[in-house]
């Protein structure tokens, strides 16, 4: 499977989506990322039982933080997919990139450029 997905996505590998930390996501925004998404396993399929549910809760918490900072909460999302779903990985990558492009550059970066 030689699947294409946008080159602007930087993948940070973690042993489980439950390892995702608020700081990982916040630092990405601080350093100028326009959007961040977490790709976790299918709900109910977590090898560590609840890692992907924990990741979703952290993503939802971060949405509140972004809103308080005046940044669109849609810039952070959680997606579930199995490791056997390469085409879905590529599809989510394309869809999320399109959504972020629609939102435009991160307001953090815009201020810096101005």
């Amino acid at each position: 499977m030689r699947l294409q997905y946008p080159t602007n996505i930087k993948i940070i590998q973690l042993p489980c989506s439950g390892r995702v930390d608020i700081l990982h996501m916040l630092k990405s925004f601080e350093d100028g990322a326009d959007g961040v998404y977490v790709a976790g396993c299918m709900e109910g399929d977590c090898h560590f039982l609840t890692g992907n549910f924990k990741a979703r809760r952290k993503v939802n918490y971060l949405k509140g933080v972004l809103a308080a900072l005046g940044i669109e909460p849609e810039r952070v999302e959680m997606f579930n997919m199995s490791s056997a779903e390469g085409p879905r990985f590529a599809q989510v990558a394309r869809e999320f990139t399109a959504k972020i492009k629609e939102l435009g550059p991160s307001p953090v970066k815009k201020a810096k450029a101005a």
């Binding site: 916040l26 601080e30 900072l69 940044i71 953090v108 810096k112």
Partner: peptide, 19 residues
């Protein structure tokens, strides 16, 4: 220490955003 990191990062983002 963790929460210091989170709060400080949030404040830095807010400041960057405000230029």
């Amino acid at each position: 220490e963790k929460e210091v990191g989170i709060l400080a990062t949030m404040l830095r983002i807010a400041r960057k955003k405000a230029g």
